[in-house]
């Protein structure tokens, strides 16, 4: 029979994977629409967590209020980020420059620059060490399921992730906003010609994607009980890896790959050591890039 210890590790890996998935959804959404990499996504996650911390220490509101305020902060961050780091580089709106390498690379570097400023700014404001969140807010009360113990956070994160994913699918397939997002993703210029406000659609996408990033940030903060300015970097890269593995613009693909990534890191932690767990993600990325350049789910590829 299975040693419950391994089941426990699998559960930990899975919950890690769900966190990566939350990040990856926002990342993939933005990539799918603009075809650009948003390097500042990890910082949105961090800022979301810090916004939650400030809110809790200042007003001590109920958990759901914290979550919703952080989501609003995330949306605002996405809006600002798009205006600062992406819009100035969409100087021309023809197809060639919207999909041009120059635009992609300059926005990649501008979002990178913004992420450096945000991270280092937080370090100046809060110091680089861990900030602890008030104990009563933490979502780590243990729940025993047979031989495996999970915590409330696992359930909450899983539920929130499922809600977000379901909500997003509903939004994308059933609403007007979603329709324009999909249209811009498929062909920005064509969308413009049929009367879609592409600029507004893009900024909306950023707001939605960043909302998810910020939500993930506060949930993870409450799950581990500690946050720090550089906390967004590693999950940001993992989300990136999941996105590439999932085929770059497929949200379900990215989610599955994020879960896989979390699980394999859990296994790596069990069998090797947690220090080397990161190698798994990077190794996966390199292998995917070399052997499956279309992503693991490239065949049934869909945009956004």
């Amino acid at each position: 029979m299975f040693d419950p210890y391994y089941l426990q590790q699998l559960a930990i890996g899975l919950s890690q994977g769900v966190i990566y998935a939350l990040m990856a959804i926002g990342f993939t959404l933005i990539f799918g629409v603009l075809n650009v990499v948003n390097f500042a996504h990890g910082e949105v996650y961090t800022v979301g967590a810090f916004a939650g911390l400030l809110l809790i220490t200042a007003f001590a509101p109920p958990f759901l209020v914290v979550l919703f305020v952080v989501l609003a902060v995330g949306a605002a961050l996405g809006f600002g980020l798009e205006r600062i780091a992406f819009k100035p580089f969409r100087r021309f709106s023809d197809e060639a420059s919207l999909k041009s390498r120059a635009m992609r690379e300059s926005t990649l570097m501008s979002s990178l620059a913004v992420s450096i400023v945000a991270r280092e700014g937080l370090e100046i404001a809060f110091g680089s060490q861990m900030q602890t969140l008030p104990f009563e807010y933490l979502i780590n009360k243990p729940i025993a399921i047979g031989p495996v113990t999970i915590v409330t956070g696992d359930v909450i994160i899983f539920v929130v992730a499922a809600l977000m994913l379901g909500g997003l699918q509903y939004l994308l397939t059933k609403t007007r906003v979603g329709l324009s997002i999909r249209a811009v993703s498929a062909n920005p210029l064509g969308a413009k010609y049929v009367g879609i406000d592409t600029d507004r659609t893009i900024v909306t996408t950023f707001a939605i994607g960043s909302m998810m990033g910020a939500g993930a940030g506060i949930l993870v903060g409450l799950y581990y009980g500690a946050i720090f300015p550089a906390m967004g970097f590693v999950p940001g890269i993992k989300a990136f890896v999941a996105m590439v593995m999932g085929g770059l613009s497929s949200i379900p693909g990215a989610v599955i790959c994020a879960l896989l990534l979390g699980l394999s890191e859990g296994l790596a932690t069990t069998f090797i050591s947690s220090n080397w767990a990161d190698m798994v993600a990077y190794g996966f990325l390199i292998v995917t890039l070399i052997f499956f350049p279309q992503g693991l789910f490239g065949a049934g590829r869909e945009r956004v």
């Binding site: 990499v37 390498r101 992609r104 690379e105 990649l108 890269i237 990136f240 890896v241 590439v244 220090n275 080397w276 990161d278 190698m279 990077y282 190794g283 990325l285 390199i286 890039l289 070399i290 350049p293």
Partner: peptide, 22 residues
């Protein structure tokens, strides 16, 4: 990795840099 184009190459170098650092 050299057959990868633009953004994929950038991501691959990032991952390699991180691996070496790890």
């Amino acid at each position: 990795t050299m057959r990868l184009v633009s953004i994929y190459f950038a991501v691959a170098t990032l991952a390699i840099g991180q691996m070496i650092n790890t």
